[in-house]
Amino acid sequence: MTDDQVTDDAKPTDPNNQAQQIWQSQPVEDIKMSADVIRQRAGRFERKISRRNLRESITSLLVIVVFCYFFATAPGILFRVTWTLFIAGMIWIIIQLRLKGTPKTMPAAMGNSSSVEFFRAELERQRDLVKSVWLWYLAPMVPGYFALNLACIVISPRPPRWGSLALIDLIFVAVFLGVWMLNQRAARCLQRTIDELNAS
């Protein structure tokens, strides 16, 4: 490549513009990174992502193991169905988090996308994720919770304590509603930003 192919022509378009001069003449450290250092850092970055994924997998696995323990020690078929539903719900959430939670934009795509395209895609991804939180994060736990309630009432060795059960249900519903409403608000904020972007 010849020098002039990437020559910086970032000279002030208006020499009298004080702000441009101040900006361009600010002291810089002129940090240099050799290709080897870059490779090492890229490798570190990928290892960091792998470790994070491994951490998340182990945490999810531990939760599933705990659910499996409850399943194995469950006193009746209805409790076993309950824990099976919870395990299935957990697996569904983990898969969805993996599929939707990670930005898909790689550096190559960044070079091919203008800022507007990139920014819009990222905002839309985040909006869709929070807007559909009930579908992939909340709903998968609901069948297990209903089954647990039913099991407690029908086959629990002790007579059901209706007051305690109602209180737990109330807390459960409040938490679910709270999470859903917070996420809907976040989705509206993101949509406003997307609308501003579309108008530009």
Partner: peptide, 25 residues
């Protein structure tokens, strides 16, 4: 930014200038 730039050049296809590519990334 430097790492992303280096990785991005793996698939630089010359459809835009290096400067445009670099600033986008």
């Amino acid at each position: 930014i430097h790492v992303a730039l280096w990785r991005s050049f793996e698939s630089f296809d010359g459809r835009c200038s290096v400067r445009t590519w670099m600033y986008r990334v």
